[in-house]
Write a protein that binds this DNA or RNA. Sequence first.
DNA 1: CAGCATCCTCTATGATACTG
DNA 2: CAGTATCATAGAGGATGCTG
Lengths: 130, 130
Amino acid sequence: MNVRTATPLEPCGPSNHEDCGLRLILGRLGEQWTVMTLAELSAGPRRYRELERALEGISQRMMTLTLRRLERDGHVLRHVAPTVPPSVTYELSDLGRSFADHIAGLVAWSRRYKWEIEMAQAAYDTHPEI
Amino acid sequence: MNVRTATPLEPCGPSNHEDCGLRLILGRLGEQWTVMTLAELSAGPRRYRELERALEGISQRMMTLTLRRLERDGHVLRHVAPTVPPSVTYELSDLGRSFADHIAGLVAWSRRYKWEIEMAQAAYDTHPEI
DNA sequence: CAGCATCCTCTATGATACTG
DNA sequence: CAGTATCATAGAGGATGCTG
């Protein structure tokens, strides 16, 4: 017997699940560094190199791409100080902070149920249930 | 002046953002049909063909792959009725329902801020700010 | 009905080298 | 420092045909 949720995930239309703009937002979460970048920026503004060091293992290419996409989506603000050498600072916009707040819940959930999911995967992989 | 969130997205360790299992969960969201599949299943159990019809545009390949991954992660339960032709029903597990509840919030957020994001993108694309 | 197998394309991501 | 440019790989995802 499965308890139904009070508020089931609502489709976009009447039995219509066409892309109602969800991928626009959720697609970002599929990108490896987006969540970590938002996590780091949610603690305060960061310079390019600071982010790069915090997200150990990220390539320059992906650091720049991730920041550009977040900036394009309006989640991140980019400030350039015309010094030599240049100093570029990134920080969350209000929209980005709102976004980060929401995915924070998902991140917490992920941490909490990581074990259950790993167990389920292990069980699935060992059983020849396919 | 930017208001800080009460609970900033917490890194995995002290300034350590290595993959702490987040991709395990969040990676699924990057897959185009996962959210829609969970949405459909959150309304109740569905047979394979019912899902396929609800998620208009999905290929058989992706329908199967998405269900297999969700099943492997323990989000979805698969019931096979050994009839001819076979009848296979999918439904959310308790874990899957918990997961669906959390992403429902994100989906609602996506709908609400879709416009802002599209505006930000349009502004970014027109301005030669690069 | 509920898949699996094969071929093909596009994007995410990494590695490396170069620059104002 | 803060990038850009180029080359290369893996997996997402689609199209099509076949099967118990």
